[in-house]
Design a protein around this nucleic acid. Structure first.
Lengths: 208, 208
DNA sequence: ACCGTATCGGAGCACCCCGTCCGGTTCCCC
DNA sequence: GGGGAACCGGACGGGGTGCTCCGATACGGT
């Protein structure tokens, strides 16, 4: 479903495919999904045609590269649903989703971009959103979250998180952590302010 | 300073320049700043060379097109500083800045992107940020905003706002309005939750 | 060791982008 | 209205991207 059939491949072809996927994941994660296929082929020490033989289009490569990220997101949501305290579960899910998105720019963009093609993203995204909706509903019922917060607000927050840029992945994660705390604060029903993680310096040249 | 000299231009050249700027502003606002120069020339009913004659590089055209948006941002900040209640001023500034950014995708991206070249953006951005810092400081002192909120958080919020996508400019503005309210809520020192504007549906296909 | 065949990989195609060149056109002043 | 300078705009060069073709290569069963 996610990875192409590896069974009947020759050994060198299998090695190449694995190397291509590894390289593609790393490239898309750090540089976003506009990395040229040629560049991925070069880094995987492989010809362009070899990439296209395994992944007939760039979109297919993107889908394959992001499949495990999507699985990670679904796992995060399910773990959140399994948490004893729905409020804590919700909080954790937001934090962890934002961290995944911060770690992989390409995945985040792909997720919130509407790809017309096959791309089983729609299905995974739908499942994740349904899980989020359920979690949100429970957290609201338990009194942890304002009643007037809707699922669309959570989506809004996740999209917004994607707009955050920073120079390094670490800086992005730190910024996302702070941002997650701020958003959660604004969702919270309990009026008492919660402590925030340490502030971060975004990539903008501030005051100069 | 912002617009090139118009004085010694022939009448047709002046007309063309104005039409190019108009078209460029509209195009960059609605489609982001990766609109091809050819396309702008076509819409302005002008040859490519004519665009390049007035604006020697695409960056120059961007700078010229965004100059008035930058002025608008500075005006917004100054009006916020002039407000009697620093908290209300801060609130209004955030809301209005986010609205401007939502209305002009290209400008938002240009602002938070670090252009290496001339681009007097750095100066305007610096002034805006200093104003924001002053406003934030006053609002904190007046007790409207949490003491642990720093200027970087405001920048974070503005960058995040840029990540919000929607199908139409109206939808973007509505989404930004909601987002601004959420962020302001999280900055607020007063524990009582404030009402939010009506929820919005982001461009993501939700639950499907 | 050998050979058929799956696989490889670089050259090549079609397209799009930014920015320039130069012959033709238009304005403006007299 | 006429001439010269300012101006226009399509064609062009250089570079980049997704994707394909086909001769060269390497695997692996015999």
């Amino acid at each position: 479903m996610t990875a192409p059939v590896v069974h009947e491949l020759r050994s060198d072809a299998r090695d190449n495919q694995e190397r291509i996927l590894e390289v593609a994941r790393a490239a898309f994660a750090s540089e976003g999904f506009d990395v040229p296929i040629r560049e991925i082929a070069r880094r995987a020490q492989v010809g362009v045609a070899t990439v296209y033989r395994r992944f007939p289009t760039k979109e297919a490569l993107l889908a394959a590269a992001f499949a495990e990220r999507m699985a990670a997101c679904l796992t995060i949501v399910e773990e959140g649903l399994a948490a004893a305290d729905p409020w804590q579960g919700f909080r954790l899910v937001i934090e962890r989703l934002m961290e995944v998105h911060a770690l992989d720019r390409g995945f985040a963009r792909a997720l919130t971009s509407k790809f017309p093609r096959v791309f089983d993203f729609a299905e995974g995204r739908g499942r994740a959103l349904r899980g989020l909706a359920e979690l949100l509903s429970r957290a609201k019922e338990a009194g942890g979250i304002r009643k007037d917060v809707v699922l669309e607000d959570v989506v809004l927050a996740l999209m917004a998180n994607e707009g955050i840029r920073a120079d390094s992945p670490q800086a992005r994660v730190a910024a996302s952590r702070r941002f997650a705390a701020l958003m959660i604060q604004s969702f919270r029903a309990d009026p008492a302010p919660v402590p925030l993680p340490s502030p971060v310096r975004p990539s903008l040249p501030i005051s100069q």
